[in-house]
Write a protein that binds this DNA or RNA. Structure first.
Lengths: 235, 235
DNA sequence: GCCCATTTATAACAGGGTTATGAGATACTG
DNA sequence: CAGTATCTCATAACCCTGTTATAAATGGGC
């Protein structure tokens, strides 16, 4: 997997440096000269390895999707699929909250060079899982939704369609929160995200009581997780 | 209101040209030299009137919010507040679908110069309506939500909190759809947005039957609207 | 050990935002 | 009405950033 000890090293280090500079300096820090200086090479490295800044930014976006998927994969499955959905949401939100600049690029927002990293069609017809790259994140939501339907918590429905509803709501909340609405800190979670999750669960067929119970289960799981792993996540 | 017959004219024409070029050429068309050439002035106009490209882009973003609010304001009030919410959602989505580049800037996405047009806190504590600028769009959702609560369609709840849930879901759907997910054309509306609306309405206290009925009412209103006014909207 | 391909540094080019400067127009003032 | 101050705008340059041409250097394959 690593036949070139130094060449790919530069490529990887460029992406790492890009994410690092992005986090601390925002989109305007994503410059060929800054990146090159950061790892001690010339700007040519950007062109031999990526062909240009646009492709490098694409790679950064892909890396963001990969990180998001990796985080969501850590959420695991319990016997309460609705609680798992809440945990996925909490994790999704946490990832964006910790690295807003990275995920702004990942989601195609504020692309530095006027370049977008849009994906492509996802649920093209009705339920195609033609996830082009990084849409494994969506798959996690789909699987949890599927289990919620099978467990009788959600009404029988197209799992992709139901998952897309959840994803829309979650993504919208995260996006608006990252834009500064919904206040700072955790208040958006308590005041909006959790009520939103209960609203969706109930609307999809769950009872208020069970949805609220799943909320508490997810909260407990989250506290246990942050207690064990500190709060740095991976990376 | 217009003591300077020509001076403010240049300012307005710059913003108009910016939106025009943005629509056809994307974010990379938002350049001082292109804007100046478009209206037949020099790039200095950008600096005498705005101080720089960043402020001009901010003004474009503000204009986008204004247009969105104006569109939503056209969605009057009927005796079915839930149908009104669906109509607001349809309008919100339509605005973004017609001018995706403009609203990408408006929502702080893909800001051309690495600049963001973020607003600030909105529901700071629990229900402050300290909308800084252009958050009148959110107010339309709040008012319709309030009427839905008063009409007994939604359970008693904090109107800002409930409206924020609706806004999150709507904004997430629109954002993801604009990024190319959910397919092209109207299929995202039928397959995801409308089911999402029903899910939310039911989750907030409405019955499935009444929510579906409101969906049909909103559809009919939309058809009537597009039949009367063509499909160009304002602008 | 030699040759080819890849990688890299240097230096220049091109296209952006921005600024210095002065001319022109406009509005106030006596 | 003349003069002056202010605002607006065009020209031209400056700086920064992405990109490319070129050649040196490094490393793998025979």
């Amino acid at each position: 997997m690593s036949p070139k000890p130094r060449a790919n090293d530069v490529k990887e280090r460029l992406v790492e440096a890009a994410i690092r500079l992005l986090d601390v300096g925002g989109p305007e820090a994503l410059q060929a000269r800054k990146l090159a200086a950061e790892i001690g090479v010339s700007t040519m490295a950007v062109y031999t390895h990526f062909g240009g800044m646009a492709a490098l930014v694409d790679e950064v976006a892909r890396t963001g999707f990969g990180k998001l998927s990796a985080w969501l994969a850590e959420v695991g499955e319990t016997d309460d699929p609705v609680a798992d959905i809440f945990s996925l949401a909490r994790t999704y939100r946490q990832a964006v909250a910790e690295q807003p600049q990275l995920f702004a690029v990942t989601f195609g927002q504020s692309a530095p060079g006027g370049k977008r990293a849009t994906l492509s069609d996802l649920t093209t017809e009705e339920g195609r899982e033609a996830a082009p790259e990084g849409l494994e994140a969506f798959d996690h939501i789909v699987r949890a939704t599927e289990r919620a339907i099978e467990a009788g918590r959600f009404r029988p429905a197209d799992k992709y369609q139901a998952a897309a509803q959840l994803w829309s709501a979650l993504h919208g909340f995260v996006t608006l929160e990252a834009s500064g609405h919904f206040g700072a800190g955790e208040q958006g979670i308590d005041h909006i995200l959790i009520p939103l999750g209960i609203t969706l669960a109930v609307g999809l067929g769950d009872t208020v009581e069970r949805a609220e119970h799943s909320t508490e289960a997810a909260k407990a799981a989250w506290r246990a997780k942050t207690r064990n792993a500190g709060q740095g996540g991976n990376d």
